[in-house]
């Protein structure tokens, strides 16, 4: 209970909530990718993907691959996290008010978890539809063959997939917001 009092400046402000909301603001306003995959050598890429819930850019042979609904889904994700950041910030400043408890959102934590699950499902779908196994992280050689003129065209591409610093920042913000919500619950109980 002492720790809760310290973290809330004697039940007035939820410091962890404020910190997590600031991280969530940064996460939602950043266009940096959470996950990248690039195949090729040097500065030439056969394909590249820069993916975050707020921005998705995919290129194959130097040409973009677009899905018209994606910018709207990205905007929805951005607005949701911005709203979560705002409500957590306001709730954290008003930690002494019992009605501030519902303002502490867990959306900041669910998004990085759903993102990872979505990536996992997406990569497995790619494996079953195109027959190409792509790992979530790590270096690998992508080998792919297509029939051509009675023979085969075989391609071999060195590739690398990474979860970026931005992803870990977003996950840290989410975990912090979950702890802040727990602390907030303790404050509400004590009021």
């Amino acid at each position: 209970m002492v720790l809760v009092k310290v973290l809330t400046l004697n039940n007035r402000f939820n410091l962890l909530g404020i910190a997590s909301s600031l991280l969530l603001f940064y996460t939602a306003l950043s266009n940096s990718p959470w996950w990248t995959m690039a195949g090729g050598m040097g500065d030439e890429f056969t394909f590249s993907a820069e993916v975050s819930p707020f921005n998705i850019a995919v290129q194959v042979l130097g040409k973009p691959v677009t899905v018209p609904i994606l910018p709207y889904l990205n905007l929805a994700a951005r607005l949701s996290i911005l709203l979560a950041a705002v409500t957590i910030f306001v709730g954290s400043l008003l930690a002494g008010k019992p009605w501030s408890k519902p303002l502490m959102s867990l959306r900041g934590l669910t998004l990085p978890i759903l993102f990872l699950a979505g990536l996992f499902i997406g990569l497995n779908l790619a494996k079953s539809f195109v027959g190409v196994g792509l790992p979530l992280v790590g270096k690998f050689t992508l080998e792919y063959s297509i029939p051509y003129a009675g023979g085969w065209i075989a391609t071999e591409t060195l590739a690398d997939a990474t979860l970026t610093q931005e992803y870990w920042t977003a996950l840290a913000a989410g975990i912090l917001s979950a702890i802040a919500k727990t602390v907030h619950g303790r404050v509400s109980e004590s009021l």
Partner: peptide, 28 residues
């Protein structure tokens, strides 16, 4: 926040859900 951008996008694209989810790519 979660639904309005999607409804807006669908409205702009004439509620053609198939066109909205179909990847567009023209290889070089």
């Amino acid at each position: 926040a979660a639904v309005s951008p999607i409804i807006y996008g669908l409205g702009i694209h004439g509620w053609n859900i198939q066109a909205m989810v179909t990847p567009l790519y023209s290889p070089p």
